[in-house]
């Protein structure tokens, strides 16, 4: 039973990185660079950082746009948002919105 759970959980996680997703302007790979703070697949249990898993696309895009422009104050997100194009942000948004 336990083995079954492990393998099905892993398979579930893994589908998020399957090639079909990766080909979409690399959203999965780019999103993975956020995981050091926002958790693997954007999932966090109980942490100070905002979980990105399941975040509606529009919310992610607006946040990154406002960080980039400086409209939304931050510690370091403003710096990081500078490094991503609109297309990058769109691809990451699509990826995170799909994570259940």
């Amino acid at each position: 039973m336990k083995t079954l759970l492990v393998s099905s959980a892993l398979a579930m996680l893994a589908t998020l990185f399957t090639p079909a997703h990766a080909s979409e302007h690399n959203g999965a790979a780019m999103a993975a660079t956020c995981a050091g703070c926002h958790g693997t697949h954007g999932k966090l249990r109980n942490q100070e950082f905002v979980p990105l898993a399941g975040m509606p696309e529009a919310e992610f895009i607006r946040a990154m746009r406002d960080y980039k422009s400086g409209k939304r104050q931050s510690t370091l997100m403003g710096n990081l948002a500078q490094g991503f194009s609109d297309r990058d942000v769109q691809a990451m948004a699509r990826y995170f919105a799909r994570v259940k």
Binding site: C37, G39, Q47, E48, F49, T75
Partner: peptide, 16 residues
């Protein structure tokens, strides 16, 4: 906040 995030990061990063 930078200091608070540093402490949080030690945990989230280790988990990732």
């Amino acid at each position: 906040l930078g200091a608070a995030y540093q402490q949080a990061w030690l945990k989230t990063f280790t988990e990732d």
